[in-house]
């Protein structure tokens, strides 16, 4: 059993998938199935890393912010003023600067400004567009799965196993969330408990992989298209599994593009 849990594929794929399945199902009645995302991610952190915050490295800041955003999402699900969505995007941008601060401080001024603004824009963008999917569980499920799998695989190719596992865990958890909807042909409650931690963690992981590993920067704009692509119009009367399939094809195509661009630069992962 111990050996099984030490397997990176179990840590970043199977374990978060199972955890997300259980949580999505268990919390369905409380309309908190979206917690599946943070449950899957937390399982991966527990198995592949730890929850300690000393020293507070960039990857630990991501874990911390992921957990905090999931906690913050619960009261935010009760509010829906118009200013909240842009405010969350700004908070995402600020979080990106805070996570990368130590790295940015070591760059020349021009690089520091470019990378800081780029990361803030990327994370803010993801938070904004994913927040727009918080009442569309099938779209959010497909987009989350594609963003997690695409970003995770690209980070893995870009020479960071831990960041790769973070991304893949999100993809696996979102996949579990989507699978339940496909099998039962009924939508799960989504909400900000799903979209907020997903967009925070995926965005910050992507930025960190660019700054500290070999992930090319132009992969991020390709990944950023995913939540927008998940808004394509669909025939409303189609069964949920068909809608899920169509959305997954579109969003996974973007993810595949991101992985291909990374692979062209880095080749196979150095494992």
């Amino acid at each position: 059993m111990h050996e099984l849990l030490n397997n990176p594929a179990v840590q970043g794929g199977l374990a978060p998938f199972i955890a997300a399945l259980i949580v999505a199902e268990l919390f369905q009645r409380m309309r908190l199935s979206g917690l599946a995302i943070i449950a899957g991610f937390a399982v991966t952190v527990y198995l592949a890393s730890d929850f300690s915050i000393e020293p507070l490295t960039a990857s630990r800041k991501i874990v911390l912010l992921g957990l905090l955003s999931a906690g913050l999402a619960l009261p935010l699900m009760l509010l829906n003023p118009r200013w909240l969505r842009p405010l969350l995007a700004v908070a995402g941008g600020g979080a990106a600067v805070w996570v990368m601060l130590r790295i940015l401080q070591q760059q020349e001024m021009m690089h520091m400004l470019l990378w800081g603004a780029g990361c803030a824009l990327y994370v803010g963008w993801l938070v904004f567009w994913f927040d727009g999917l918080n009442d569309a569980s099938v779209r959010a499920g497909s987009a989350g799965m594609a963003l997690g799998l695409g970003g995770g695989t690209a980070a893995l190719f870009g020479a960071s196993a831990l960041l790769g596992q973070f991304g893949l865990a999100l993809g696996a958890a979102a996949g579990a969330f989507l699978l339940i909807q496909m099998l039962t042909n009924s939508p799960l409650p989504c909400g900000r408990s799903y979209t907020l931690p997903l967009s925070f963690i995926a965005g910050l992981t992507g930025c960190l992989a660019v700054l500290t590993a070999e992930l090319p920067w132009y992969v991020l704009p390709v990944l950023a298209v995913i939540p927008v692509a998940a808004k394509i119009p669909l025939p409303a009367k189609q069964a949920l599994w068909i809608q899920s399939l169509l959305l997954s094809v579109v969003t996974l195509a973007c993810a595949a593009g991101a992985v291909y661009l990374t692979w062209r630069v880095t080749g196979a992962p150095p494992l």
């Binding site: 790295i103 500290t212 070999e214």
Partner: peptide, 12 residues
């Protein structure tokens, strides 16, 4: 890989 966040986190 050794320079990445997995090991020495050389940028940070």
């Amino acid at each position: 890989h050794l320079k990445s966040t997995d090991f020495f986190s050389a940028v940070e």
